[in-house]
Amino acid sequence: MKIKAIILFSMFFLAVAAITPWIGSETIRAEEVWNFFLGTHSPQSDIFWFQRIPRVLLALLAGGTLALVGACFQVLFRNPLVEPYTLGVSGGSALGAFLAISIPSLWHVWGPFSSVQLLAVAGASASLGLIYSLSRRQQGISIYTLLLAGITVSIICGGGILRLTYISSPNALVVFQRWMMGGVDIVGYKELMALLPLLLPGFFLLLIHANDLNHIALGEEMALGHGVPVKKVQRNIFIGGGLATAAVVSLVGPIGFIGLIIPHSVRRLVGFDQRTVLPCSFLLGGAVLTVCDCVARTVLAPTELPVGIITAIIGGPLFIYLLVSRQWK
């Protein structure tokens, strides 16, 4: 475990968190921001405290979550190409979200939770559960079945989404299209707070198994021989990863590449010990998505790009570079 690496990544994370809220099409002065606490409101202070800060916090959380889940899933399935969405999570989540968006009678709000979020979570969990049960063998998880099952579930969910698209109102289609592009543009803290009941247990289930994942990387039998309760670890990573991904995807949509690229980059920088890789993946993933969002809202200001486009533009070439340099292991 490399404490120095975690401290360095934390410093980068905090620096990004501190700097990016000040960047945007609207110039904001520090004086206006501090005066907010003295009761003097201005449009700039409201933009800062109710738009930029929640947005930056959501980007930090969402990017961190996707990278953390990606890092855990890549070890659990012993496959470097797995990301949170490979296993049909985004397909299941999108189908659930679209179901809630397109059928008006399903639209409800319970406190900070909306039916879009809850059905997205349910869809993601159902996908993960189905894929897990299909790929489970007595000796462990069959990687080929897992990937095929993931692709199959994604196709089935895609079919369901097409069916809903066919019967949905134009209004619902616009909302769904925007959701699919991915974005962290929220106003206020209510939606952010609504994430926490799902994210925090998810983080807990993932991070308590950081050491166990090192052993799982040696193979299931070797891990069992070392004394790791492999089935419990697999179940918790599944539930934790599913909860956390579903929570994030339900709010920000399917943002690609962060969950795939960041864990690989972190391993190249800090080694393979998951006790270092997991926290560093969270910190770098959060920081990178926040920087990407900062670019997305400033590069064509005052027009904003969906952040998913930026992550794809940066992540695609980086992925090819990693692939060509053959440094997966």
């Binding site: 070890v75 090192n214 990387a217 193979g219 004394g227």
Partner: peptide, 17 residues
């Protein structure tokens, strides 16, 4: 695991420890 040490036939590591 404190009493039994088990070395399986297939030995591999996903990561280069």
């Amino acid at each position: 695991a404190r009493q039994i040490g088990y070395l399986p036939q297939e030995l591999s590591s996903e990561y280069d420890f």
